[in-house]
């Protein structure tokens, strides 16, 4: 079984599905000859041709809008938006058209497409290259939103996304792109959209996170005293959210910290806290804690690690929640 990075896992999965299904086309800025700015699509144009791995004009709305048309016309497009900060121009097409087409036509016209987007901070990138807008799209009915944090999950979730009959936003945490390798089976497998993963089992406190902060949380767990038993949940899918897995865990532990890079207010942490109090009210031993980005503009990279929920801040939040 090959040992792959997140980038390699996504690349080989795209190739796998393009080989299997000739309706799959990739389109975006620099995805062809250059293989994408993160090299996620490297080599795919040479292998599958310019008709299936398409360097488009520099127009995010154009990419999203024409991908919608491709999907309506019978293809399985995978548009890439180069960075999450460039989603703005494509927002209208994504939220007002891709997300609404099925319901406004009562199922007569659908938009099966997977939008790939590098997301999040921690890589010393320029302005508008480090945001975490997943809650915006989870709040947009008609879309599904996933964010794998490991190469294995990246493959399973990508295949599930491409084969999903509805539009799926596939966020790729760029801080994890090359941070480690793991075994990714060659064979075809999917991971169900809407299913979280228990990364480590525990009984004292639940930590819910997704994307790159999974690894900051693991770091925090390493620093905690050995007798503290933490259950770490990698949400993997932002919408539809797997409340069963979260509730089951919090009913057991009675305490929960939600960790995400996005700002606190109206972030997914707020939604998860609310769901926990609905599902686990009589089990709670402490207020649900949110350890997140601040309600500020994501700073330039000199200060990005002060903004992001890094290991010490996560550790503190866990300790305080445990001590309540």
């Amino acid at each position: 079984m090959p040992q792959l990075t997140l980038v390699q896992a996504i690349n080989s999965t795209l190739a796998h599905e393009m080989q299997r299904d000739d309706r799959v086309v990739l389109l975006g800025e620099d995805v062809g000859l250059n293989g994408g700015v993160f090299r996620v699509t490297e080599g795919l144009q040479a292998r599958f041709g310019k008709d299936r791995v398409v360097d488009t004009p520099l127009d995010e709305s154009g990419i999203m809008g024409s991908a919608i048309g491709l999907a309506i016309g019978g293809m399985r497009p995978i548009p890439e938006i180069q960075f999450e900060g460039f989603l703005g121009p494509a927002y209208d097409q994504l939220v007002n058209h891709a997300a609404r087409m099925r319901t406004r036509t009562r199922g007569a016209i659908t938009v099966p497409m997977t939008v790939r987007i590098p997301v999040g901070g921690g890589i010393h990138a320029p302005e508008l290259h480090s945001d975490s807008p997943e809650a915006i799209y989870a709040h947009s009915p008609g879309l599904k939103v996933v964010m794998p944090s490991t190469p294995y999950d990246a493959k399973g979730l990508l295949l599930a996304a491409i084969r999903d009959p509805d539009p799926v936003i596939y966020f790729e945490p760029k801080r994890v792109y090359r941070s480690f390798r793991e075994e990714v089976p060659d064979e075809d497998y999917t991971i169900e959209i809407g299913k979280a993963k228990v990364v480590s089992e525990g009984t004292d406190i639940t930590v819910v996170t997704w994307g790159a902060p999974v690894f900051q949380c693991l770091g925090a767990l390493d620093n905690l005293p050995e007798d503290v038993s933490v259950e770490l949940i990698d949400l993997r899918t932002i919408y539809p959210i797997d409340i069963e897995t979260i509730a089951q865990s919090v009913q057991k532990t009675g305490r929960c910290v939600v960790v995400h890079e996005a700002p606190k207010t109206a972030g997914m942490g707020a939604e998860i806290s609310s769901l926990i109090q609905e599902h686990c009210f009589l089990h709670l031993e402490a207020p649900v804690q949110r350890c997140t980005g601040f309600d500020t503009i994501m700073p330039y990279y000199k200060l990005e690690l002060d903004y992001l929920p890094e290991t010490p801040r996560i550790q503190k939040a866990i300790e305080e929640c445990l001590a309540y």
């Binding site: 008709d51 809008g65 024409s66 048309g69 491709l70 309506i72 293809m75």
Partner: peptide, 19 residues
Amino acid sequence: PIGTQMLHATGIAWAAKLR
């Protein structure tokens, strides 16, 4: 909404060409 459908038309036509 005004003017959003032209991209869909372009995509549908592009799909027809690819297919």
